[in-house]
């Protein structure tokens, strides 16, 4: 059974907005990234999966439950972290979290204290008085308190300082080890690179690619910097080189091709020093965005 499966899922608002024919298959236990620029349809997809908005076409299941007809059952198994947090201003965090666990069966209320300590959240403070980051901490806690099988995270780190982001990623890694499936929507690619096994790219409401992150990085070009012996500069770069920039005996270029050919070429040239870098995921995905 898949954690998430969408078949031609669509939500149309007039001509251009919404999502069209979204097809996703997320395996159980996987950390799946969902990337796209702002307004691409990430939140619309998530809100449709959660039953907050009704699909105009297609269908979807979460952990085997239909999103339209079995919403109650599937929401028992989901933890959702929204990108913007809107809670009841008159409550404090403790009241909000106790209210939240009241909707689920057999939740240990001691978990609230434990997680609040971990994220350094003052439970007694009114929600209206919390900063955006602290509201986000409260939202993280409510998302994991009932030990969901699937976590749906929409721009989860916005508002968190770097220390809390690290704690949050520690928590996600722990949840991942316990077998929780994580659906991670973000436009911050380094987060996707850090956490996810696979990722889908959404653009203008349509899925433009689904890729294995490691494969994607392997397939892609390398950034190469070479320093030659000044007496033996080899200006014939290997096949697959592009954007070369010479500076005396140094050259910077991008290489796309089999790594063995590059090594063999370096072996034949009198190379003094070499630096090879992977381009970051951002550069790779910019290609998808631009297409």
């Amino acid at each position: 059974m898949l954690a998430i499966e969408t078949i031609n899922l669509s939500k149309l608002y007039g001509e251009n907005r919404g999502i069209r024919n979204v097809n996703l298959k997320v395996e159980r236990g996987e950390v799946f990234g969902f990337i796209g620029p702002n307004g691409a349809g990430k939140s619309t997809t998530i809100r449709t999966l959660l039953g907050l908005i009704h699909p105009s076409g297609g269908r979807a299941t979460i952990l085997g439950h239909d999103i339209v007809s079995e919403g109650v059952e599937l929401r028992k198994k989901i933890g959702y972290l929204p990108s913007e947090v809107h809670y009841y201003d008159e409550m404090n965090s403790r009241e909000l979290l106790e209210y939240s666990i009241g909707f689920y069966d057999n939740i240990n209320p001691d978990e609230i204290e434990h997680l609040a300590d971990f994220f350094e959240l003052d439970l007694a403070k009114n929600i209206a008085d919390l900063s955006f980051g602290n509201k986000k901490k409260c939202a993280i806690i409510q998302a994991v308190l009932h030990r969901p099988e699937l976590l749906i995270l929409d721009e989860p780190t916005s508002g968190l300082d770097p220390l809390m982001q690290n704690r949050f990623f520690d928590l996600l890694e722990e949840k991942h080890k316990e077998g929780t499936t994580i659906f991670f929507s973000s436009h911050i690619l380094s987060e996707i690179q850090r956490m996810c096994d696979r990722a889908a790219v959404i653009r203008d409401g349509e899925i433009s690619a689904i890729e294995n992150i490691q494969d994607l990085l392997k397939k892609q070009m390398k950034k190469v910097r070479i320093v030659f012996n000044p007496d033996a500069i080899n200006r014939n770069l290997p096949i697959g080189s592009q954007n070369e920039k010479w500076h005396d005996q140094k050259v910077n270029f991008e290489y796309v091709g089999p790594i063995e050919s590059l090594i063999q070429w370096m072996n034949e040239s009198k190379v003094v020093d070499v630096v090879m870098e992977e381009p970051d995921l951002e550069t790779i995905f910019m290609n998808y965005y631009k297409r």
Binding site: R75, I78, H86, F103
Partner: peptide, 17 residues
């Protein structure tokens, strides 16, 4: 109006309930 419906409706309760 306060956008708390997002919190409420992502709990395991139906809109009818």
């Amino acid at each position: 109006r306060d956008r708390t419906s997002e919190f409420l409706l992502t709990r395991p309760v139906s809109r009818k309930t």
